[in-house]
Nucleic acid binder design. Structure first.
Lengths: 344, 344
DNA sequence: CCCACCTGAGAAAACCTTTTCCCAACCCGC
DNA sequence: GCGGGTTGGGAAAAGGTTTTCTCAGGTGGG
């Protein structure tokens, strides 16, 4: 290992530039540029010759130089505080999918819940002249720990609380809840309980309200939803509350759960009591977290928030904003989808 | 909506440039640049005045222009085929963490298992002149569906199969398995079974071998590992195989599982049989997927692969490669860590 | 035969920053 | 008063591309 030699780059030869292409084709850089971009006027023969030369040399335009000139970097940032990516990764997949074949790449920035980190990432992105930012999170009713309101570049909020006057995309939680409850009704269920997360979450109320509305519309008795945690353990405990009392006729014949983990806890607890799912009691979850939904016994019917679609829409919305199309501010709700497996 | 008006940008004013700072401070751009970068010679008073002006104007250097000049974009790509991010997100967090305060941002590119998509992403990244690429995946013994071997920029492989002669970082699976088995021994367990994933995975063999080695070293009888799927269902079934036979004395007193989902299945099945964990049988999982490990009853002891550290190391390795430091090629194994909860 | 117009292609500016080189002025010693 | 060194700061090139402007030569009409 000769330390005195100059530090050996992996592979020395720099990328081929337009100037080299032009030289090789015997034209000026201007002509070469125009030939490759289909601009300007020249004989078809010249254009083709230049193109062929470029192809042969493996020329690829330096995106940095292009960006500098066009004031457009073909780069966007995805800001999230969802460390485990439970929500932001499907969303990211959608964003990326919508943008990749327009040549746009995505910076993923996890800011945890740290304002300093958020600041750092946002500044890095601005310095790199991202064309826009998609802000996302792990819940709909909280802001990211960064201020994106005066940014000079477009921002789209997806699955997180938007700033006033901004463009926001969220899932239609009420609609999703309706899907679940209506599925139960279709199956002939009449006493439909609701076990969900903590009171502090806005979606808890949105979904509970929709649950109650559907029951009312169908002339069925309503009750209070059971609020707790987003955990299996709470699902377990809730079954005790619902099915612990003697008198089988008071028992629900269906449980609509606020997320899949609760649903899993419910199903496990029901099985432990010898109550059959779905024969005796139907169970439907929320989120359609496949890894959980498919592991429950029986596999869990669940409401899917279509996060990838949400991401795609967010990507497209951001893109049109970047291109100067005015977009109607405000929150747009995208429909959920019921994934029917076996539990309800 | 007046379509004839020029498309209204969200906020028109362009970022402030060095030229503007220089003009405001009454100096040339050269001097301004040197003042801000601590280069060149000038009176302390001049330097301070320029800095103050820049601060006042909110000047931030255009990273694109800097990159063009320095041939260094302060940008890297993270390539993965792990759609749900189970492994790549913690890794990404590590990479990002190692790089963010050096001003380096990370493009996340999910290529699924689609070579076309891989090609697309890699070309986009190369065009954007990323300084290097971290390749990662969802298993250690498979290549990504892209060829990164002749790329002109450094590539580091983390948690995926490296190209020959490249720098690769993986978890020390054998060491991780040893941690688990030795924990059992420490607790006085003597009949330690191993339930793991499909034969086609290299880690299945690595971990099984380490498991057997530790048993041998301690003069304990060894058996064949139970190979199956990476699922709860398989964990369930495996318990039938292990504990189905009559004769309690033949039963294992510990089960080392190839991942947390199998472990969960095992624990659930044991409980259904009235076998207590950890009193009668200890269970240890692998991956330390918190969401699973903490939901099992009792909470699951599990081997953590330290993916964030792996990512951090990958980021640092890539960085030194980018800076021209020669790095020893070959695979480096990073230690795992046992997270003790209650199951074993 | 001359002028107007068109065609094909090149020169140069622009994007923004960094860095090298250069120059004017000043200070010092002699 | 003058040469040599130092000090503070500017001019210009470089990086790679796009776009506008310009220009030379050719063509057609009058």
């Amino acid at each position: 290992m000769s330390a005195d030699a100059e530090p050996a780059p992996v592979s020395a030869k720099p990328p081929v530039t337009l100037r080299e292409v032009a030289a090789a084709a015997g034209v000026s850089v201007a002509t070469a540029s125009k030939a490759l971009n289909g601009q300007g006027r020249m004989t078809a023969e010249t254009r083709e010759r230049i193109r062929e030369t470029a192809r042969l040399l493996g020329f690829r335009p330096n995106s940095l130089a292009q960006s500098l000139l066009r004031k457009r970097s073909f780069t966007v940032g995805l800001l999230t505080n969802d460390t485990y990516g439970r929500f932001s990764l499907p969303l990211m997949a959608g964003v990326s999918d919508a943008l990749v074949d327009k040549g746009v790449s995505v910076f993923l920035c996890n800011v945890e819940d740290d304002p300093r980190l958020g600041q750092l990432h946002v500044e890095a992105m601005l310095d790199k002249r991202v064309d826009g930012i998609v802000a996302t999170g792990k819940r709909i009713d909280r802001h990211l720990p960064v201020d994106l309101s005066n940014l000079r570049i477009p921002v789209v909020y997806a699955f997180t609380q938007p700033d006033p006057g901004a463009v926001g995309l969220v899932s239609d939680d009420a609609g999703g809840a309706r899907l679940a409850v209506e599925q139960f009704l279709r199956l002939g269920r009449r006493r439909i309980a609701h076990v969900t997360g903590p009171e502090s979450f806005a979606v808890v109320h949105t979904r509970a309200e929709a649950w109650r509305d559907v029951l009312k519309e169908n002339g069925l008795p309503t009750a209070e939803p059971l609020l707790g945690a987003w955990s299996e353990a709470w699902g377990h405990d809730a079954v005790e509350k619902l099915f612990g009392k003697a008198g089988r006729e008071g028992w629900p014949d269906a449980v609509f759960c606020g997320n899949d983990q609760i649903a899993r806890g419910v199903i496990d607890a029901l099985r432990e009591r010898g109550i059959r799912v779905p024969e005796d009691v139907g169970v439907i979850g929320f989120d359609n977290w496949e890894i959980v939904a498919e592991a429950t016994r029986p596999p869990l019917t669940s409401v899917d928030m279509n996060l990838a679609s949400l991401g795609r829409e967010a990507g497209l919305a951001l893109l049109s904003l970047v291109e100067g199309q005015p977009a109607a501010p405000g929150i747009r709700k995208l429909p959920c989808r019921l994934v029917v497996r076996q539990s309800g």
